[in-house]
Computed example of a mutant assay.
Amino acid sequence: MPSKKITYSIQIVVILAIFFFVLFNLVFKLVIDLRSESIQKKAEQIEKERIKSEFIAKIDDQYNRLIKLYEANEYDKAIDIIKVFNKYKKSDYKNLPEIKKEIRLFYLKKKLEFIPKIHLNEYMKLSKDIDIEEDDSTEVFIRTPRYGQYFYTSDFPILFEAVALSVTGDFSDGIIWTSNIDGELGKGKRITVRLSIGEHQIKAIGTNGITSGSMMTRIFIEKEPDFLKKYIKK
């Protein structure tokens, strides 16, 4: 009859054998899983490279398709193609930067209804929501006066107000105002002016230090009719 010591030793050996067997299976499974994952990632990478190569090979066709969508004002579909150009680092292909800028501005005007309610935070949020690669352009929006607005000389001084925005900040205080009749009118986000009688093309020019942007509006200054003079307070 084996001694207790021998029996105990056999039990230890069996336990160790089971332990190492389980450990070996776990390690083996881990190696297989890692290998499978590596093979899968490699296959995915090969597939991505294949798709990229196909895109590059047919890039002119994709660009022509983009132009057709852009000219048809189908901007949502155009943006989907632009994202692919960005993905494969072809964001500067031909005049794609200009197209992106125009689409981006279109959506800004549409979402803000091009009314005098635009603020820097809204502008920057919308720029990101549109999901087109950001640029360093400066956009200028004239809040007042409205296009085609008429003023009498008795309305002087007239308030001009605009904003100059970029993804890097608000540059409205540096806006330069000009008139095709009276020349430079002043500088700032808000100015008051007295203009000569006539049809004025008013231009607001802003810059972020890298690029410049501008917007124009047209107003009419007229001398008040004689029959109104008696109603105008001196």
Score class of each variant (00 low, 15 high):
G188I: 03
A204F: 03
I132K: 03
M124R: 14
E161K: 15
E54L: 10
N64P: 10
S179L: 08
D182F: 14
P145K: 05
T192E: 07
T153R: 01
K89R: 14
S91F: 08
S38E: 06
S53T: 15
Q40V: 02
K68A: 12
I32A: 10
R35G: 00
E113Y: 11
Y70F: 13
A164G: 14
S166G: 15
A164F: 02
S137T: 12
I115M: 08
P2F: 15
L165C: 07
F220Y: 14
I32P: 02
E98K: 01
I6F: 06
I175H: 09
P225W: 05
K117A: 08
V13E: 12
L126T: 03
G169T: 01
L96I: 02
E222V: 00
E44N: 12
S212C: 09
I67P: 09
E161T: 15
P2R: 14
N180V: 01
G148P: 08
I202E: 14
R143G: 07
L30Y: 14
Y8P: 00
T144M: 07
E98S: 14
K110I: 01
I67R: 09
F156T: 02
E133F: 04
F220V: 15
I118N: 08
T178A: 14
K29M: 11
E71G: 04
P225G: 04
E98A: 12
K125W: 05
Y152H: 11
E49I: 01
Q201R: 13
P145H: 11
R194E: 10
Y107N: 10
Y147Q: 06
F156N: 07
H119Q: 07
K223E: 15
R190A: 01
M1F: 14
E102M: 13
I56C: 00
F24C: 05
L112D: 06
Y70G: 03
Y88L: 00
K223A: 09
K223N: 12
K233M: 03
I82P: 03
T192Q: 03
S53C: 06
V140C: 04
L66V: 05
T207N: 04
R143F: 08
L66Q: 07
E47M: 02
R65L: 13
K189M: 02
A72S: 15
G148M: 03
D92L: 05
K58C: 06
V163S: 13
L105M: 12
R194Y: 08
K189V: 01
I39N: 09
I81K: 04
F20G: 00
K83C: 00
L185M: 03
R104A: 00
Y63H: 06
D33I: 11
G148L: 13
V27L: 15
K48A: 12
K128T: 01
L105H: 11
I51N: 00
P97H: 11
K77R: 12
